[in-house]
């Protein structure tokens, strides 16, 4: 059989005859016929220019960005950070954001969607930080949430998940 160099079929044909690999689509129901199509693909997702934020979490730092250009209409820190200023499309600069704030609003995650990596109940909070023009969605890893409650950031630096879950807050 002629093969293109470097291309190897996953399964070789036997005597030129195509054979199935033996795996079976599981049936939920025969009529109507409902089959199972499992998915297990891995997405290789880049944080791109925002990598510094997630690297910062692993180092115990809360990194935001701000537009330092003269004439920038928004001088405050953006958190979540942005590589480019949405008001001017100019490149932002990285700065360390304050690690204290207040709870702006909250709820509790009890029935998370399938890929959730943390335990429940998980108090979800939105944090208001002085000098930051946005709020920041996060969770309270200790204590009971209440609007106005002062909180401070804590970082999961020992076994980082490399996700936003590496940042959480506790009562200050």
């Amino acid at each position: 059989m002629n093969q293109r160099p470097g291309v190897r079929p996953l399964r070789e044909t036997c005597n030129g005859q195509v054979t199935l690999d033996g795996s079976v689509a599981d049936l939920d129901s025969a009529d109507p016929m409902v089959i199972q199509n499992p998915k297990g693909f891995v997405h290789h997702h880049t944080y791109g220019g925002l990598s510094k934020f997630f690297q910062g979490l692993a180092q115990g730092k809360l990194m935001g960005t701000r537009n330092a250009n003269p004439g920038a209409p928004e001088k405050r820190i953006w958190l979540p950070p942005r590589v480019y200023c949405p008001d001017t499309w100019q490149k932002m600069e990285w700065v360390e954001a304050p690690t204290v704030g207040r709870i702006f609003t909250h709820t509790t995650v009890l029935y998370p969607g399938a890929p959730f990596r943390a335990s429940v109940p998980c108090p979800l909070i939105s944090v208001e930080i002085e000098g930051v023009c946005t709020k920041l969605m996060s969770y309270l890893s200790q204590g009971t949430p209440k609007i106005g409650l002062p909180v401070r950031a804590v970082f999961n630096t020992t076994h980082p998940t490399h996700t936003i879950l590496d940042l959480s807050w506790v009562p200050a």
Binding site: T105, H106, T107, P112, S126, M137, I147, T163, I164
Partner: peptide, 23 residues
């Protein structure tokens, strides 16, 4: 929701609305 900064926090839209409701 934003997959970098929100989705991991619960994977549950009702919670994102609950934050608004509470406020």
């Amino acid at each position: 929701a934003c997959k970098n900064f929100e989705s991991e926090l619960g994977w549950f839209y009702a919670s994102y609305y609950a934050l608004m409701a509470q406020r």
